[in-house]
Write a protein that binds this DNA or RNA. Structure first.
Lengths: 336, 336
DNA sequence: TTGAAAGCGCTAACAA
DNA sequence: TTGTTAGCGCTTTCAA
C-alpha cells in the first residue's frame, strides 16, 4: 500500500512503464483506451509519483527557497505571502529560510552545501557584503532582493530608496515641518537599506535649505517597534524636539507613535510621522500611518521572472531592476 | 564543474564511493589519512552531495511542510517563525504552504499528490471537516494545529479555547462590564475556533447571570482588521452599545479600536477590549491590547515532537495535547 | 503510439 | 576499515 511504484501500475495495466509515465505526466500522444486503462490501474493501486525519484531523473526540484532574516517581521511575512502565491502559480513550492540577520546564516544561503535541493533562491541579505555574495557558487540561480549594492554578476530587484526617502521627507517639509528627525536605522553595522534612506532624507533637507541636526537622527537597537519606542522615549527625555519624523520602517513608526503619545505629543499636530513598507497594520494604527509603499507584487513578479530565466539557462550578467513605490498618505502626515 | 559526483571524488582520491560517502556523512569509522585524502579531493572538485539522489536512496527528505491559510496574518507569521526555528534545530527544512482557507487547497494538503516530498506535515485547517481529515492518506505523518475537532487517528496540538474565552470574558466582567459583545467570528461557515471562543464567552456570561444579547455578537466578513472595523462601525451606527468586547483575535481587536475611536468611544473607559493571539503588535496598539496569549513555543515544540515520533515509526492512535495560555493584561482592559 | 533499458547520484547490505 | 554492487523510482533516448 505504502509504496506503489510506476512499475506496479504498469504490471497491473499490462503496459510498460513508459506508457504509465506518459499518462502521469499528461503527455499528449497516448491513445484514449490506453490512458483510461492506465488511469484505472493508478486509481486501483492508489499510485502517487515519488517526488524524489522524479527529481533525480529530471534534475529539477520544483522548489525555490526564499531567504530573509525573519518572517515574524510584517514586511517579510507579507512579502512571503505574495511570493508564495506567485511561486505556486508558476508551479513551484517555497522553502522558507530565516537567517536572523546573522552573517553565518547568510553565508549558508549563498554557498549551498547541497546541490539539487532547490531550483533557485530568492534572497534578501541584511548583513552580507556585496563582494562576498559575488563569490557565491554559480550553480544555483539566485535573485537578490533589497537595496544592498548587488554584485554585477547577480540579478537584483530593488526599489529606489533614496528617491522614496526624498519624497517622504519632502512631504513633511511641504507640511511646514523644519525639525525633521530620522528614526530606526541600526545603531552599528548600518544596513545599506538604512543608509540609502538616510541619504535621501539628508538630500531632501539640504535641498530645502534645512540643516540636518544630528541629534534628531535616532538609531534603534533592532528592527522592532519596542526598540524604536525606547529610542524615541530616550530622545524626548533628553529634551530633543522635532515636528516631523521619517521612519526607517513601519515598525519604527509604530514604536514612535507609542512613545510620542506617552509624552503627550499629538500626531500629526505636534509631530508628523512617515513610515515605510505599508504593512497592512499601517492603516490601523492610531493615527493611521503615512508610509512609503513598495510595489511588493511587482517585486515578487520581477524576481520570479528573472529566476525562471536563470533556471531556464540564461547566464548573462546580473540585471538590476528598480520597481516602483508610492507614498500612501494617511493621518500621521496628511496631505498639506 | 557543475556536476561533480561522488564517483568523481572517489576516482580522484583513489578510493571507493563507499569511503567518500562515509566521509561525507561523517561516519565515524574512517581512518584519518583516508579522511583527509577524501576531504582534499572534495575541496579540489568542489563536490556537494546531491540532495535528490540522497533522498531517493534513503527515503527521507529532511523537509517538513507547514500549511495554514495565510502567512500574511501576524499570528501565522509568528507561528511560522518559531516552527521554522525549531525545525532547523532538529535538522529539517520547512516548506510553506498557504491554503487561503479554501477547502480545495486544504484537501490538497492532506491528500498529498506526491509521495516523497516531505517527511511530515504540520497543518492548521480552517475549513476542513474532521471526518475528511480522518480519511487522509496514512503514508505521510501529519500533526494538526488549532482547535478543530481532530479525528481520533491524527495527532493534534491545541489550546483550550473555551477556557481561555471564559477567562477573557470573566476579566471584563470583573471590570464591572455587563454589556459585553463578541467580535470577529466568521459570518457564515464558522470555524471551530470561533465557535469554541463564542461558547466560552457565552458560558462565562451565563455563569455571571448576564444574558447574552445576540445583537452584540458581531461577525466579521473575514479575519482582517478592516472587516472587523467595518463590522463595529455598522453596529455602532445601528445604535448598539456595549461596554466590553471579546474579540476573536487581535486583528479584530485592532479593527475595533479603530472603529471605537472614530465614534468617540474611549478604550477602556467606555469599552474594554480583549484580543486573542498576543501578536507582537498587541503591545503597540493604542491603547495596548489585553489579549489571550497561546504558548506558541510549546505548540511548536509539541507538534514537532509528535511529528518526529511518527516519522520515527510510531503508529498509535492520535494524541491530543493541550498547551497552556495566559491572559496578557494591558491597557485595553486593565486589571480591576 | 508504445516498449526496453540505460541512467540520474547516492546509500547500504554484503564482502573482502 | 574499505570495496562492490544492487537498488531507490522515475525519465528519456532509442527502437520497434
Amino acid at each position: 500500500m505504502a509504496n506503489v511504484r510506476l512499475q506496479d501500475v504498469a504490471d497491473l495495466a499490462g503496459v510498460s512503464m513508459k506508457t504509465v509515465s506518459n499518462v502521469v505526466r499528461a503527455y499528449p500522444h497516448v491513445s484514449p483506451q490506453m490512458r483510461s486503462r492506465v488511469e484505472s490501474a493508478i486509481a486501483e493501486l492508489g499510485y502517487r509519483p515519488n517526488a524524489s525519484a522524479r527529481r533525480l531523473a529530471t534534475g529539477r526540484t520544483g522548489m525555490l527557497s526564499l531567504a530573509f532574516s525573519d518572517v515574524g517581521l510584517p514586511y517579510f511575512a507579507e512579502l512571503a505571502r505574495i511570493i508564495a502565491h506567485q511561486a505556486t502559480e508558476r508551479g513551484y513550492r517555497l522553502l522558507l529560510e530565516q537567517t536572523d540577520g546573522t552573517l553565518e546564516s547568510e553565508r549558508a544561503i549563498v554557498s549551498t552545501r547541497e546541490a539539487g535541493l532547490v531550483d533557485g533562491v530568492i534572497f534578501q541579505p541584511s548583513r552580507m557584503p556585496s563582494v562576498e555574495i559575488a563569490k557565491h557558487r554559480e550553480d544555483v540561480p539566485l535573485v537578490l532582493l533589497g537595496e544592498g549594492p548587488a554584485p554585477l554578476s547577480v540579478d537584483h530587484v530593488m526599489m529606489d530608496n533614496e528617491a522614496a526617502a526624498i519624497e517622504a521627507t519632502n512631504h513633511l517639509l511641504a507640511l511646514g515641518r523644519r525639525r525633521i528627525g530620522f528614526l530606526g536605522h541600526e545603531e552599528f553595522h548600518q544596513s545599506v537599506t538604512s543608509m540609502q534612506r538616510l541619504t535621501g532624507y539628508q538630500i531632501a533637507l539640504d535641498a530645502a535649505g534645512v540643516s540636518v541636526d544630528m541629534s534628531l537622527v535616532i538609531p534603534s537597537a533592532a528592527i522592532r517597534a519596542k526598540d524604536a519606542a525606547d529610542a524615541v522615549r530616550r530622545a524626548l527625555e533628553d529634551g530633543r524636539r522635532f515636528d516631523g519624523l521619517v521612519c526607517r520602517d513601519d515598525l519604527a513608526a509604530i514604536g514612535a507613535l507609542r512613545a510620542l503619545h506617552e509624552h503627550g505629543l499629538r500626531v500629526p499636530e505636534d509631530v508628523a510621522v512617515v513610515g515605510w513598507d505599508d504593512i497592512s497594520m499601517a492603516s490601523f494604527t492610531h493615527p493611521s500611518l503615512t508610509t512609503v509603499a513598495p510595489d511588493t507584487a511587482r517585486i515578487a513578479a520581477t524576481a520570479l521572472d528573472m529566476l525562471e530565466e536563470r533556471i531556464g539557462g540564461y547566464s548573462g550578467l546580473g540585471r538590476h531592476r528598480i520597481v516602483g513605490h508610492s507614498l500612501m498618505v494617511r493621518e500621521s502626515a496628511p496631505a498639506s
